[in-house]
């Protein structure tokens, strides 16, 4: 079908009109700082250079070469990926299960569930980290106190944040606690927005519940599930506050570091801004890859934005 020339031109103008506010905001506040990040990563840019005491030295890709040969980078990367995976799967399972529970529960427990969800969600990452840290504090915390009271005397004065896996586990629990509500509310809104006629029609056609769930409801919810999953991956891959607060900046000898905190430690604590920017660029590229792979998979299964 051929579209009249005038029509396309008018559409073009409309597109500019509709998309301009978003585009201006994103270019102004993302593109320029990103350009800066990429630029800094190519320089030897430490404290003397930042204060102007020494001139900038162009390194090309030497920061990246140093980073990719550093065994700590690879161990931090592996920890980041595994940690994010646990958090994403945990949030999706807990959030999805509670959304279904909320649609089935009576008004009062449902209200309580939403109160808990919105409360956890509304809690700033900072406050959530502090209260969890306080709960699991080796001396001040109620968890050790209760466990000791239950007869686990070996746990008196036990530090939950010292061991690498126990520290990661504690932070993961806090992150699932504050990120399941997003999944829950999205899924709940999605389930509630399904027209009852659609389900009734399938029922009249004699479809079983299982068939309706997988053949009717899931496809309708799919765009929301896709969004929830992408969002969770992106959020959990760049976790900063919780790790920073709960493990005291990355744990003993940096064994609880994730990429974002690693970049911050290099750039701001170590004052190696060039190296910190290089880690930021690597992180951004990795997230880009994750998203591209995910969209490919989704498009193969018929999803179109």
């Amino acid at each position: 079908m051929t579209v009249p020339r005038q029509r396309t031109r008018r559409d073009g103008r409309a597109a500019v009109l509709y998309l301009a506010p978003a585009a201006v905001l994103l270019v102004g506040l993302m593109a320029y700082p990103l350009f800066q990040l990429a630029q800094i990563s190519l320089y030897d840019y430490n404290q003397p250079q930042a204060s102007g005491a020494e001139p900038l030295r162009f390194l090309a890709f030497a920061n990246y070469a140093e980073l990719l040969t550093d065994p700590q980078f690879w161990s931090v990367l592996l920890a980041t990926v595994l940690f994010a995976a646990v958090c994403v799967v945990g949030s999706l399972l807990v959030g999805g299960a509670l959304a279904v529970l909320a649609t089935r529960a009576r008004p009062i427990p449902r209200m309580l569930l939403f109160l808990a969800a919105l409360g956890a969600w509304a809690t700033p990452a900072m406050a959530g980290s502090y209260v969890w840290l306080f709960l699991f504090d080796q001396d001040l915390g109620l968890v050790n106190e209760v466990l000791a009271g239950l007869g686990f005397t070996g746990l008196e004065g036990h530090s939950w944040t010292f061991d690498r896996f126990s520290a990661f586990g504690l932070v993961a629990a806090e992150i699932i606690w504050c990120s399941f509500p997003f999944v829950m509310v999205t899924m709940y809104a999605g389930i509630k927005a399904i027209p009852s006629e659609v389900v009734e029609a399938a029922q009249l056609d004699g479809a079983s519940w299982r068939r309706i769930a997988t053949g009717v409801i899931l496809p309708i919810l799919k765009p929301l599930i896709v969004i929830a999953t992408i969002q969770s991956i992106i959020w959990d891959f760049k976790i900063f506050t919780q790790i920073y607060v709960m493990t005291g900046g990355g744990g003993v000898a940096g064994r609880n570091l994730v990429l974002n905190v690693y970049a911050y430690q290099k750039a701001f604590a170590g004052e190696e801004y060039g190296m910190g920017a290089a880690i930021g660029v690597v992180m951004t590229v990795l997230l880009l890859l994750i998203t591209v792979i995910y969209l490919r998979v989704q498009r193969k299964s018929g999803w179109q934005p």
Binding site: L26, G28, L29, M30, Y32, P33, L34, F35, Q36, L37, I40, I230, Q231, I234, K238, F240, N260, A263, Y264, Y273, A277, G280, M283, T284, L287, L288, T291
Partner: peptide, 18 residues
């Protein structure tokens, strides 16, 4: 979608200069 991956901690120095 890509802009979602960027984050204030990484972009802060650029934002500050801007």
């Amino acid at each position: 979608l890509i802009t979602q991956m960027l984050q204030p901690t990484v972009l802060a120095s650029g934002l500050f200069r801007e």
